[in-house]
Lab assay of single mutants.
Amino acid sequence: TEEYTYTDKEKADRAAKEWANRGYTVTVTQDGPTYRVRVG
């Protein structure tokens, strides 16, 4: 499991979509002003 942190919702959504397109399980959680994209 890897985790990426973004401050921009659009970038987080785009990253999540790209990982999902590659067949990974993706979870996006909002943590205050940041968005965490957990992959795998």
Rank of each mutant, 00 (worst) to 15 (best):
T1K: 07
T1V: 14
T1I: 14
E2S: 14
E2L: 15
E2Q: 15
E3N: 06
Y4W: 09
Y4S: 03
T5R: 08
Y6W: 04
Y6K: 00
T7I: 11
D8A: 05
D8N: 10
D8Y: 04
D8R: 05
K9N: 04
K9P: 10
E10H: 10
E10G: 09
E10K: 09
E10I: 10
E10N: 10
E10P: 05
E10D: 12
K11Q: 14
K11D: 14
K11N: 10
A12K: 01
A12Q: 01
A12W: 02
D13Y: 15
D13T: 10
D13C: 12
R14A: 14
R14H: 11
A15K: 06
A16T: 04
A16G: 05
A16E: 04
K17D: 08
K17G: 07
K17N: 10
E18T: 07
W19K: 02
W19R: 01
A20H: 08
A20M: 13
N21M: 13
N21R: 13
N21P: 00
N21L: 13
R22Y: 06
R22H: 07
R22E: 06
R22P: 01
G23Y: 02
G23N: 03
G23S: 02
G23R: 02
G23E: 02
Y24S: 02
Y24H: 05
Y24E: 02
T25I: 12
V26D: 00
V26W: 01
V26A: 06
V26L: 02
V26T: 05
V26H: 00
V26G: 00
V26M: 01
V26E: 00
T27S: 10
T27H: 09
V28Q: 05
V28P: 00
V28H: 02
T29G: 04
T29F: 13
T29K: 06
T29P: 00
T29S: 09
T29R: 07
Q30K: 12
Q30D: 05
D31L: 08
D31F: 07
D31S: 07
D31P: 01
G32V: 01
P33H: 12
P33T: 12
P33V: 09
P33A: 12
P33E: 14
T34P: 13
T34L: 15
T34H: 12
T34G: 07
Y35D: 00
Y35P: 00
R36G: 03
R36Y: 13
R36T: 14
R36V: 15
R36S: 08
V37D: 01
V37L: 09
V37K: 00
V37G: 00
R38Y: 13
R38E: 11
V39D: 00
V39G: 01
V39Y: 03
V39I: 09
G40P: 04
G40D: 14
